[in-house]
Amino acid sequence: MQQSGDVAASADDEIQAYVAPADAAPAATELDRSANYTTATLVEMAGTTGISNVSSSYYSNNTACSVQWPFAVGVPITYGFGWRPGEFHTGADFTPGNGAHVQAVADGVVRVAQEGYQGYGVAVIIDHEIDGQHWASLYGHMQYGSLQVHAGEKVRVGQYIGRTGNTGFSYGAHTHVEIRQNGVTPIDPIPWLRAHNKC
């Protein structure tokens, strides 16, 4: 009797298969085997969402978690939270490349989705309830015409909300991301995202 499990491809064959036990129930529907499937790495797939600057030095995103990073893969972060010449920087600046898809960091409800929000330019603010607490995430400097959500809309973690741009008070394409405790007080988003992207 053959055991169920993965069957390794032979040197002459590229087919991979899973062998089910003989007494397994048949599938409810037939599988569509007419499509041509290919494999790709997560980084290669990120390219389909416009991410051109990839760096695992900053973070890697666990897509199984209820809180994720604003980009599907690790991208460079040019400025973090805190004082910099002339101002206090209330978030972190992610540089995935101009036009890269920005994703919601958690399930929530869109509070703001505007083409010109304060100095943030094209921006989205999403309210979240995480571990019984109210949090908000802000995404700024996105491209004009790229908003994929509207105020009052429920969004899911990882949902595409807009594209990285250079609007508002901005010097170069990036996405400014803030995490706001109680929906209003900015905290350092990097340790918060690291702590919550473990599941």
Results as ranks from 00 to 15, higher is better:
I51A: 01
A17C: 11
G119Y: 00
V155R: 07
A27F: 13
Q2H: 04
L138Y: 02
Y171F: 07
D12M: 07
A17G: 14
W135C: 05
A27W: 06
H134F: 08
S60M: 09
E178M: 02
V54W: 09
S34M: 08
A25K: 14
H150V: 14
Q133W: 00
A40I: 13
G145K: 12
T175Y: 00
F88D: 13
G80V: 12
Y58Q: 11
S146R: 07
A106R: 03
H134V: 05
Q103P: 14
Q2S: 03
R180C: 06
I130P: 12
E129N: 11
E30T: 11
E115G: 14
A25I: 07
G116S: 09
Q133A: 03
Q159F: 13
F94K: 06
D93N: 10
G162T: 12
Q3S: 11
S137C: 13
A100E: 06
I190A: 01
G5W: 00
Q103H: 12
Q148C: 08
G165D: 06
A92K: 06
Q148Y: 03
L193H: 04
Q16W: 02
H101P: 15
E178K: 02
R156S: 02
H141F: 03
Q103G: 07
A20D: 13
T48P: 15
V177H: 00
G50I: 09
C65V: 15
Y59C: 12
A27D: 14
R111E: 02
R156V: 06
W192E: 14
A28W: 11
T90M: 11
E129P: 10
T63F: 08
V43D: 12
Q2P: 13
W69R: 01
T63V: 11
H128N: 05
S170A: 07
D32C: 08
Q3V: 02
M45W: 07
M142S: 03
Y18L: 15
Q68D: 06
D127P: 11
L193V: 09
V75G: 03
V157F: 02
A40R: 12
G86I: 08
Y117Q: 13
V112R: 15
H196Y: 02
C65F: 05
W135Y: 08
P85W: 05
W69K: 03
P21F: 00
E44D: 08
T164C: 08
I161V: 11
S137N: 04
P191S: 07
I51S: 01
E129V: 03
Y171H: 08
S4C: 09
C65G: 08
Q3R: 09
V177L: 02
A20C: 11
H174M: 08
Y79D: 15
S66V: 13
Y160C: 09
G132W: 00
F94P: 09
I77W: 01
V105M: 05
D13M: 05
D131T: 05
E115Q: 13
E178L: 07
G97T: 01
T164Q: 05
S55T: 02
S66I: 15
A25N: 13
V43T: 10
A28E: 15
F94Q: 09
N197P: 15
Q133E: 05
